[in-house]
């Protein structure tokens, strides 16, 4: 109950700040519209208004404040506008429609999941190699770190162009970009997890004369599970970002990234914001789903109480 109150308080504060922010953000546009519609605006000259502060304008033309929350193309759409757009483009549209966010969400999600699978598999393989081979530890780890310092937004067009030139297009390039972002947390987490058994536990297996593969399967791998899940949660969010970024440079016609791009071409801020929220909600669902899997697995392993 106490938690719920805290969560709702924060939510309420955000909504209040958001509505308040809409006033100065949108007031100039609103006043121009109102003036054209014949309303008395202070000061009447658009030139004078341009140099005035937004808050001062809003105070002098308080009648126009409600209109800042109801524009067609506001600079900053109000929360209810985004909510209505989200509702109309998910529930009220057929999911086959090109305007349905469910359709676009699915396009992005499929690339995300494929990229996440590739990234996770690659990450685990690299981690196993790094833990078992000193050479790989020295040669692969620095490159894995360097790979994450390159801005993905700069690299994504290159990946798409290169893959296109060898005849690969569609979902694969997006998945590659998303894998590129998601393998890293998995490598780091898995390396830490596979190395988490202490010297005593390794000595114990040595006294049994256990082979390296027995040490891996019976000790290192199960010990790494909590680390793996922590990494997977970061990895899947990164995968989604990768898939969206992968949709931007191609001028893709489908996907949340395409919605963002189209929205910004046509000044459809409401559409941009609702695509942003759709992406955030999608990421939250994916992370939450992984959390459930984590709980089930660790409970089954006896590691969660």
């Amino acid at each position: 109950m106490k938690q719920l109150v805290a969560v709702l308080t924060v939510l309420l504060a955000i909504v209040v700040i958001w509505y308040a922010a809409c006033i100065p953000m949108n007031i100039k546009g609103v006043l121009t519209e109102q003036e054209r519609a014949g309303a008395e605006v202070v000061p009447p000259s658009a030139k004078d208004r341009r140099d005035m502060g937004e808050i001062g304008l809003a105070l002098r033309n308080s009648f126009a404040i409600p209109a800042t929350w109801a524009q067609d193309r506001p600079r900053l759409p109000a929360p209810h506008q985004v909510a209505i757009e989200l509702w109309e483009t998910t529930v009220q549209k057929k999911i086959t429609s090109k305007r349905s966010l469910v359709y676009h969400g699915w396009v992005t999600l499929s690339a995300t999941i494929l990229g996440f699978a590739i990234g996770t598999g690659l990450g685990i393989l690299l981690a196993v190699g790094i833990v078992h081979s000193r050479v790989m530890d020295l040669s692969v780890m620095p490159w894995a770190i360097v790979s994450q310092t390159i801005p993905i937004i700069a690299l994504a067009p290159m990946i798409i162009v290169v893959l296109y030139s060898i005849g690969i297009q569609g979902i694969i390039p997006k998945a590659v970009i998303s894998a590129y972002l998601s393998f890293f947390p998995v490598v780091v987490g898995m390396v830490k997890g596979l190395r988490s058994p202490d010297a005593m536990q390794l000595d114990l297996l040595r006294t049994y004369n256990a082979s390296n593969s027995q040490v891996f399967w019976k000790l290192r791998l199960p010990a790494s599970m909590p680390y793996l899940f922590a990494s997977l949660k970061i990895g899947i969010a990164a995968s989604l970002v990768g898939a969206i970024v992968g949709e931007l440079p191609t001028g893709a016609v489908a996907g949340l990234g395409a919605r963002l791009l189209a929205g910004s071409y046509y000044g459809q801020t409401v559409q941009i914001w609702s695509a942003l929220f759709a992406a955030a909600i999608l990421a939250a669902c994916l992370v939450g789903l992984l959390g459930l899997v984590e709980r089930a697995v660790l409970k089954r392993m006896g590691m969660a109480q």
């Binding site: 005593m200 536990q201 000595d203 114990l204 006294t207 199960p222 010990a223 006896g302």
Partner: peptide, 14 residues
Amino acid sequence: YGYVFQAAGLYPWR
């Protein structure tokens, strides 16, 4: 030989 360490070192997942 069997070796017993200072800590029990039982695997929490078993």
